[in-house]
């Protein structure tokens, strides 16, 4: 299994777009987070402690994650979709006929990549955002939020990679995932009656991991993370079943 992970790592790191996407995602996450914090900064500094808590000084710097996650999703989709697109999947499966192990290695590596990216981007966004906001969050909450960002990014990458095994095409996968994550979830969340549904979508639920403030009706961070985990597990199970039967 270590050899397969190492092989998948070579595949991922030897394509330049990997690094470009990770860097763009990180930059977006930090920049948008800082922007939000800078805009809210004056109001935040003038507010009393109760109002300050409501503004969620730990969650605010992570606002950029909603846009910064797009390149990560693209990366995970391409990592799987390019195998099918180029026909390399035949070489891969000829070298590793045990398809379950191959899928496990590929998704585990995407998860690890997501985790590393999420921790790094989360920490950078929190540090820069807190500076712009003018408030240092309590160390415990900060750690939890950064860890949450890593966990969320890991599960998101696994979900996107597993889903692409089902579609076998990068464009199809992106055509479903991006609207689901960025359009549908926004519309549902803006519609009062459907809010309870929106909170169960992967991004809404998963991003709870980075937030400490809880409105009425919000999932707790733990519950949100659990919902996101369920999404990822469902995608893994479906991908495993599909890959076993696929003819390439």
């Amino acid at each position: 299994m270590r050899d397969l992970l190492a092989a998948e790592w070579i595949k991922l790191r030897t394509v330049r777009s990997t690094w470009v996407l990770l860097a763009v995602g990180c930059t977006l996450t930090v920049a948008v987070g800082v922007l939000f914090c800078a805009l809210i900064g004056p109001e935040f500094r003038a507010a009393d402690p109760v109002r300050q808590r409501e503004l969620d000084p730990v969650g605010l710097p992570f606002t950029g994650l909603q846009i910064g996650q797009v390149p990560l999703v693209v990366l995970a989709v391409l990592a799987v979709g390019n195998e099918y697109g180029t026909g390399m999947i035949r070489t891969t499966l000829a070298a590793v006929p045990r398809r379950g192990r191959l899928l496990a290695a590929k998704l585990a590596l995407l998860g690890l990549t997501g985790l590393g990216w999420g921790l790094l981007s989360g920490a950078a966004a929190l540090a820069a955002g807190s500076g712009a906001l003018g408030a240092a969050p309590p160390a415990g909450e900060a750690l939890r939020a950064v860890g949450g960002a890593g966990l969320y990014a890991a599960l998101l990458a696994v979900l996107a990679g597993a889903f692409t095994v089902l579609t076998r095409r990068s464009l199809t996968a992106l055509g479903v995932l991006l609207p689901l994550l960025f359009v549908v979830s926004g519309i549902l969340a803006a519609t009062p009656r459907l809010r309870s549904l929106a909170r169960l979508l992967p991004d809404r639920a998963g991003l709870r991991l980075t937030q400490t403030h809880q409105d009425v009706g919000d999932l707790s961070p733990l519950a949100g993370g659990g919902v996101m985990l369920l999404w990822a597990v469902a995608a893994i199970v479906a991908a495993r079943t599909a890959l076993r039967r696929q003819e390439v």
Binding site: K11, T14, V15, R16, T86, G87, M88, R90, T91
Partner: peptide
């Protein structure tokens, strides 16, 4: 099987 079965950006 297929000579083009390699990611174009990979060496």
């Amino acid at each position: 099987l297929d000579a083009s079965a390699c990611h174009p950006a990979r060496s």
